[in-house]
Design a protein around this nucleic acid. Structure first.
Lengths: 199, 199
DNA sequence: GTCTATACGTGGATAGAC
DNA sequence: GTCTATCCACGTATAGAC
C-alpha cells in the first residue's frame, strides 16, 4: 500500500459476511458492470447462497450505493490530504499524484465509482454527486490560487479543472496491474498536469 | 456538423429499418449501457416489434459490434485526416482538436465505442482492438517526430501517448450538449495536449 | 418484412426450515 | 444467519400467420 494513497480498509463493515459480500460485489461490478452482475455471482464470491445476501443488504442497488459512497469519500479524502505544499504548483503536483495513484492502486473500486453512477437511484445519485462537486472544487481552488499568484496561466478555468480531473479519472478505465507502478504513474501525471497549467 | 469532424452518415446501412434499429441502439446503449438495454427498447425506438429486429440482426451483440466497428473506424479516420501540418506541434494540435471535437459532437456513439468493449464477443473485440492500436500508433508517431526534431520533450513516450489519448477519450464520459461547443473544447484540449509535451 | 404469440432461460427477491 | 426451494417478472430469441 502506498504512503500517499489512503488505505481501503473494510474492517468497519460488520459482520464479516457483509464485508465479504461488499468486496465480492466490488470485484464483480468492476469486471462485468453492475447490470451484468447477478446476485448469485456476488453471493458465490462470498461463499454464500443468494438468499443470504438479503440478510445484509436490502437490494443489489443498495450494495452498489454503499460501495459508491465509500469510494467517493475515499477519493475526496485522498485529494484533501494531498493538498499540501507551500506553492500552488507543489499542491497541484501532490494532489494529482495522489489522486492518480489512487485510481490506479484501487482501480476496481474506482471503476465502480466512475462508471456505475447511472445504476444508482436518483436519491443515491444526488448524495454521491455532492461529493463529486467537492472533489472538483478542491482542484479548482488550487488552480485559482495559482492564477492569482501568477504561477499558472489558465484560459478556461472550469474547462481546465475538468480536463485535469478527467485525466486522472480515466486511469480507472484502462489501468491494470501489469501497466506499471501507481506511484510512477502519479508522478508522470502530476508533471503532465503541471505542464498543462504552468506559466 | 463541424468541418473537422467526419460526418456520421448512415445511408450505407440498408434498408431503412435496419438503419433505424442501429441508430436507436446507439442512443439506447449510450444512455443505459448495453446490458441494461432490452431488444424491446431498441425495437420500439425504431417503431417495430422486438421480433422484427432479428430479420436485420442475428443478435443484440451483433448490433453492438456493427456500431462499435463503425464508430472505431470513424474515430481513426478523424485522427488520420487531421494529421496534417508542417510541424509536429501543428499536427498534434490538429489531431487532438479533431479527435476531441469528435468525441464531444458524437458523444453517443463515442460512449458505446469507449465503454461497451466488455460486451463484445472475443472475436469481435479482437477486431476493434486492432483499430484501437492503430489510433494509438498514429498519435505516438507524431510525438516521436516531435521528440526527434526537438520540439517536444517527453520523458515517457507510451505513458504520455496514453495520457493524451485518454484526455480526449474521457470527453465521451462527461460531455453533454449543454457543456459547450465541441470546436471550442477541441481547441482547448489541443492547447492542453501541446503544453503537456512541448519543450 | 412485420406482426402476434410464445417458448425458454434467467435474475431479483422472498418463504420458511434449521 | 444461512440454507433450499421457489415465485414471478422480464429478456432474448423463435414460430408461424399475413
Amino acid at each position: 500500500m502506498s504512503a500517499v494513497t489512503s488505505p481501503l480498509v473494510w474492517e468497519h463493515v460488520q459482520p464479516a459476511a457483509a464485508r465479504r459480500l461488499l468486496t465480492g460485489a466490488i470485484d464483480a461490478f468492476a469486471e462485468r458492470g453492475f447490470q451484468a452482475t447477478t446476485t448469485r455471482d456476488i453471493a458465490s464470491r462470498a461463499g454464500m447462497s443468494p438468499a443470504a445476501l438479503y440478510v445484509h443488504y436490502p437490494s443489489k442497488e443498495r450494495l452498489l450505493f454503499e460501495i459508491s459512497l465509500y469510494g467517493h469519500r475515499a477519493a475526496l479524502d485522498v485529494l484533501r490530504n494531498a493538498d499540501q505544499g507551500s506553492s500552488p504548483a507543489d499542491r497541484l503536483r501532490g494532489m494529482i499524484s495522489a489522486f492518480t495513484a489512487w485510481h490506479a492502486e484501487h482501480h476496481t473500486i474506482a471503476r465502480v465509482v466512475q462508471y456505475e453512477l447511472a445504476a444508482l437511484t436518483p436519491e443515491h445519485l444526488a448524495e454521491v454527486a455532492a461529493i463529486r462537486r467537492a472533489i472538483s472544487s478542491q482542484l479548482e481552488q488550487v488552480l485559482t490560487d495559482g492564477i492569482r499568484d501568477g504561477s499558472f496561466a489558465v484560459s478556461d478555468l472550469p474547462g481546465t479543472t475538468l480536463a485535469v480531473l478527467s485525466l486522472a479519472i480515466d486511469v480507472a478505465r484502462w489501468y491494470t496491474s501489469h501497466r506499471g507502478d501507481p506511484e510512477a504513474l502519479g508522478t508522470l501525471y502530476a508533471d503532465l498536469a503541471h505542464r498543462m497549467v504552468q506559466t
